[in-house]
Design a protein around this nucleic acid. Structure first.
Length: 672
DNA sequence: ATCCCTCGAGTTCA
DNA sequence: CTCGAGGGAT
């Protein structure tokens, strides 16, 4: 066979394999036997082995996996992957419906689409020119990880879309594992002496996180698609049509279980039906998603920061288990908050062993009436965090012990006080070892100063050896100090010292967050860093100056002035400065040309991302907000701008096109 | 005064 | 993830 013939045959094979894959996985209508398919597939592999140049990006041979990667690269989602608000009762569903009708100003019912909520892992697939070109995890919704190689191994994900495919299509879906396959996988792992996965979702997540996609290829993963991000060309008018469109492109959607309903009662009825069917399904679902069907209305309703206003997740009641409270212990957080934690006889809840559950505070203990020794019902809230639901009073033997609220801190013995209006009792001891420990852990944490390797164990030893009295002392540690630690060799010590050293150059906003000032989290820290530019400037600010800033109120201001007034804190800051930690904010507001002006961006911006636009406004002292009111200065309308544009016109707010906005903002940038 | 939205803080397990 | 609470809009 010469090259030309080989190329020809390769093309034929690709077409055949794509077609039969589509028939089998997407249409559920195979035309050839599995063994015939395998034969074609083997022929393709042999051909490509002989002529490696034929191995294209979307060749079906890619299904077997690619070379391992060292780590997953971050991928920014061009349209954020939002999460959903939850509802657990007909009541809450009615509230959702009422809220929507209020927002839209209408009385008549509207059409909702109901689809099962798969218990799996959310992913995004990007198709360019009809070819699968990028696949990623949801991550935090803004940025996920590039798992293209792993996703390519899933036979249900088409490598090419059925024509006519849009030039660009971003599809969202849920990757999951069928129960039977999950069982078989665990069986095999047991035989091979490996640990078993707790549940199908963990197995799916684990499979997608394999750095070697050849391993992912051996995992039986499935996918259902349920949404889109960006899409070139005309998008369908309704969600249901959109699903149909995805299906016609060869993407797998859960059509038989997706249907529309014209009233909340109808929605609820279907939810109850799904719940009844839940245990007989071949895969796990954890609820049902309800969406406003009309895409125009979806647009009009818009989003909050993390969730769309036009969808809600109805959750099945979480799985519960019964166990015994062995003990209730006190934990002291970095702010001094004293949290009671129930230590439980280990019990399996929804596939995971649970041995502890936070009781949050004393009001909660009283509400539940829980005593040490009680038999209790435990569930996992949102299927993640263990939560104690109720006490089985009828099983009391009389040997249970009540627990008094603490009068003094369990760690340092100093008095505990509960401030007016607050639920949480706090330790007021300034040198409380528990507070210091948590404070250092927070300081070193990833989102703060990001000191890699400085975890629980080392912090404990530093404190035990009395090497650190405050976070500032971290930067005074010597190799000799570290050598006193258990199991600490030269290499480890140098690594830790290097990590501490590296953290010196963290930006101001991180340092501010790391200091653990009450009411100063990441967001507030960023505002302060941008506005003041240095610790010194901030420390000199008066309460009034602080309150004048947007999103800073009296509570936050008082907490800040209080922090900087303390002699001990002054000493810590001086010491940090001495160690070379005194960052200037690099994103300092460069001018106040836009001070007091609020911008709202709506529709799709084509020349810059929304984030970019917002940060440019903020750099000039302006603010970016999400909702239009009469106090909004400008509305910047991109393509397909919806209700916000309408509202802006009604209120007489100035509307700018993207071009006008860009021209004006660059003029201002040049001025400053 | 009231509603809505975000933020901060505390939490589990693999 | 889920509370409670701070802050802004109305």
């Amino acid at each position: 066979m010469n090259i030309q013939e080989a190329t020809q045959r390769h093309l034929e094979l690709c077409e055949l394999l794509h077609r039969h894959n589509h028939l089998y996985h997407s249409l559920d209508r195979p035309e050839i036997s599995d063994s015939r398919y395998d034969a074609l597939f083997r022929e393709l592999l042999e051909l490509e082995a002989r002529y490696p140049r034929l191995r294209t990006e979307t060749s079906p041979s890619r299904r077997v996996g690619a070379a391992p990667v060292a780590k997953f690269e971050p991928v920014a989602h061009s349209v954020p992957m939002l999460s959903l608000e939850n509802a657990g009762s007909l009541e809450e569903l009615r509230e959702f419906d009422a809220r929507i009708k209020r927002a839209l100003g209408r009385r008549e019912n509207l059409t909702y689409v109901c689809e099962p909520k798969m218990d799996g892992v959310a992913v995004e697939l990007v198709y360019r020119g009809g070819r699968f070109s990028l696949g990623s995890t949801r991550g935090d919704g803004t940025t996920g990880e590039n798992i293209t190689d792993n996703l390519r191994t899933i036979a249900q994900i088409p490598l090419r879309l059925q024509p006519p495919a849009p030039e660009l299509l971003e599809v969202r879906g849920e990757v999951y594992m069928e129960l039977e396959n999950f069982r078989l996988l665990n069986e095999r792992r047991t035989e091979e002496g490996e640990t078993v996965f707790a549940n199908p979702r963990n197995a799916t997540a684990g499979s997608l996180r394999q750095l070697d996609s050849k391993l992912s290829a051996r995992r039986p993963l499935c996918i259902f698609c349920y949404g889109i991000g960006r899409m070139e060309g005309e998008a369908p008018d309704s969600h249901a049509e959109m699903l149909g469109h995805l299906q016609s492109l060869g993407l797998r959607v859960n059509a038989p279980m997706t249907l529309t309903r014209d009233s909340v009662e109808g929605v609820w009825e279907y939810f109850r039906q799904l719940e009844a069917r839940r245990d007989s399904l071949p895969f796990e679902i954890d609820g049902m998603v309800v969406k406003v069907d009309s895409r125009a209305l979806q647009q009009e309703l818009g989003e909050k920061s993390r969730t769309p206003r036009w969808a809600v997740a109805l959750k099945f009641p979480p799985r519960q288990a019964v166990t015994r409270v062995e003990d209730i212990r006190m934990q002291v957080g970095r702010t001094g908050a004293i949290t009671p934690v129930a230590h439980l006889s280990p019990v399996e809840v929804g596939g995971v062993m649970v041995s502890r559950a936070s009781l949050h505070n004393w009001d909660e203990i009283e509400r539940l009436g829980v005593r040490i020794g009680d038999r209790v019902v435990v569930e996992r809230a949102g299927d993640v965090i263990p939560d104690l639901v109720r006490v089985l009073l009828e099983e009391r033997t009389g040997d249970e012990r009540e627990l008094p609220a603490p009068q003094s801190c369990p760690a340092c013995g100093s008095p505990v006080s509960r401030l007016e209006g607050e639920v949480v009792p706090r330790c007021q001891g300034l040198s409380c070892p528990a507070r210091l420990k948590e404070g250092i852990k927070h300081f070193a944490s990833r989102r703060a100063m990001d000191i890699e390797g400085l975890g629980d164990r080392y912090v404990d030893q530093m404190l035990a050896l009395n090497l650190v009295q405050s976070v500032a002392d971290l930067y005074k540690l010597s190799r000799e100090d570290l050598f006193q630690f258990e199991r600490m060799g030269e290499r480890l010590a140098d690594k830790l010292l290097a990590a501490i050293g590296q953290s010196r150059s963290r930006p101001l906003e991180r340092l501010l967050f790391a200091l653990g000032i009450r009411h100063v989290g990441e967001h507030v820290a960023k505002i302060l860093a941008r506005h003041f530019g240095s610790l010194e400037a901030l420390s000199e600010a008066t309460g009034e100056e602080l309150c004048a800033l947007h999103e800073i109120g009296p509570q936050v201001a008082q907490s800040l002035t209080g922090f900087f007034a303390s002699a001990r804190n002054k000493e810590i800051l001086r010491s940090l400065k001495e160690s070379g930690i005194d960052p200037e904010s690099d994103t300092r507001i460069s001018s106040d040309l836009l001070a007091g002006r609020t911008f709202v961006f709506t529709g799709t911006l084509s020349r810059l991302s929304r984030q970019e636009a917002q940060s440019r406004v903020e750099a000039l002292g302006g603010r970016a907000s999400n909702s239009v009111s009469k106090r909004t200065g400008f509305v910047v309308a991109g393509q397909d701008a919806g209700s916000k544009l309408t509202k802006a016109r009604e209120l007489g707010v100035t509307v700018l096109s993207e071009e006008e906005f860009l021209r004006r903002i660059s003029e201002l940038e040049n001025l400053s």
